[in-house]
């Protein structure tokens, strides 16, 4: 914990872009394309390696197409924009020029989407993003990384540069507590087990890992132990290893900052459990009640839509009761 305490909290995008910046200084074939979206680290990149950067303006369709063209010319491309816009504004461009074309041409294009879930709290539903896991996992060859903290986010450029294909990097826009020490999670596994024990395991991604840890703390205060897993490689985690970890549990709770029952992480885990024949009761935590326009702090909004600490704790208790019945 001491090592974690010494890390200054930063936004995921800043640690990720800093890693990318260092890689760009070493490798002229890395290209950063932005849809007029910045950050202080982006300013540094633009100043120091201008030949490897281009701003396409507020034009996400062209962001994807230009990125595809650069990738076809051998560049390793990072495209950078706000999460709902880089996924849904240009969905067909991603399908045709990244997902389809990368099946027949070597291409390395990595979409960095900032603003997962409710992280743009006061900007309302246009800038919030509760559908991206659903729509991006529909592509059979899309790798999705959903880190829960800045340390994991900083690891992503290295991961992305080491393998071709289309990838979506789903970043929170807020500065979140640090979960990992200088020793980052093992990406080859695709998940990290933060807590273990008890009958139920909370399987969360992104911001919801922090909620899961708070829920676990609350339950522990009343003597109930639960497991907590951070799933950050949504489509590429080690299925065998996860099965081994889950074998000690009787129930699993999926936790995502996206619409419940709409094909996101809940559907993915349902498929996994059925396909593997696991004997697990499953509870899905996700946004309920459709689009909302209320303003408020993120944790308050989360309670409104059923994914806040209070509501989740209550639901997990319910699951435990049904398991012991």
């Amino acid at each position: 914990m001491d090592a974690i305490a010494t890390i200054q909290p930063k936004a995921m995008r800043d640690t990720l872009l800093l890693s990318l910046y260092e890689a760009m200084l070493r490798d002229n074939d890395i290209f950063l394309v932005t849809a007029d979206f910045g950050s202080p680290v982006m300013d540094k990149i633009r100043a120091d390696v201008p030949q490897q950067v281009v701003n396409v303006g507020i034009a996400e369709q062209n962001l994807i197409n230009v990125s595809a063209g650069l990738a076809l010319e051998g560049f390793k491309v990072f495209a950078y924009a706000i999460a709902p816009f880089i996924t849904m504004r240009c969905y067909e461009q991603i399908r045709v020029n990244l997902a389809l074309l990368s099946e027949v041409r070597p291409m390395n294009v990595n979409l960095i989407g900032v603003g997962a879930g409710y992280s743009y709290v006061v900007s309302g539903p246009t800038h919030q993003c509760y559908e991206d896991l659903t729509v991006m996992r529909a592509f059979p060859n899309m790798r999705i990384y959903s880190p829960a903290d800045q340390v994991a986010a900083a690891e992503l450029p290295g991961r992305c540069l080491s393998s071709d294909g289309p990838k979506y990097l789903r970043l929170d826009a807020q500065v979140l507590p640090v979960l990992y020490s200088e020793e980052p999670p093992i990406f080859a596994n695709g998940f990290h087990e933060h807590r273990n024990g008890g009958a139920v395991c909370l399987l969360a991604t992104g911001y919801m890992v922090h909620t899961a840890l708070k829920v676990a703390d609350r339950l522990m205060a009343s003597g109930i132990s639960v497991g907590v897993i951070d799933l950050f490689d949504i489509c590429g985690f080690s299925e065998d290893l996860l099965q081994s970890v889950l074998s000690s549990y009787r129930g699993i709770v999926t936790m995502e900052e996206g619409f419940r029952g709409r094909g996101g992480m809940d559907a993915m885990m349902f498929d996994y459990i059925v396909r593997r024949g696991l004997d697990l009761r499953m509870l899905n935590i996700g946004v309920e009640g459709g689009y909302r326009f209320e303003l408020g702090e993120r944790h308050v909004l989360h309670e409104h839509v059923g994914i806040g600490v209070e509501r989740v704790t209550e639901k997990v208790r319910g699951l435990m009761k049904s398991l012991s019945a």
Partner: peptide, 21 residues
Amino acid sequence: ETINGSLGHGAGVGAGMALGL
């Protein structure tokens, strides 16, 4: 060179290739 059929993609991909070259 590229995927075709869905219209309106060639110019952007071509622009990216031209910039890369």
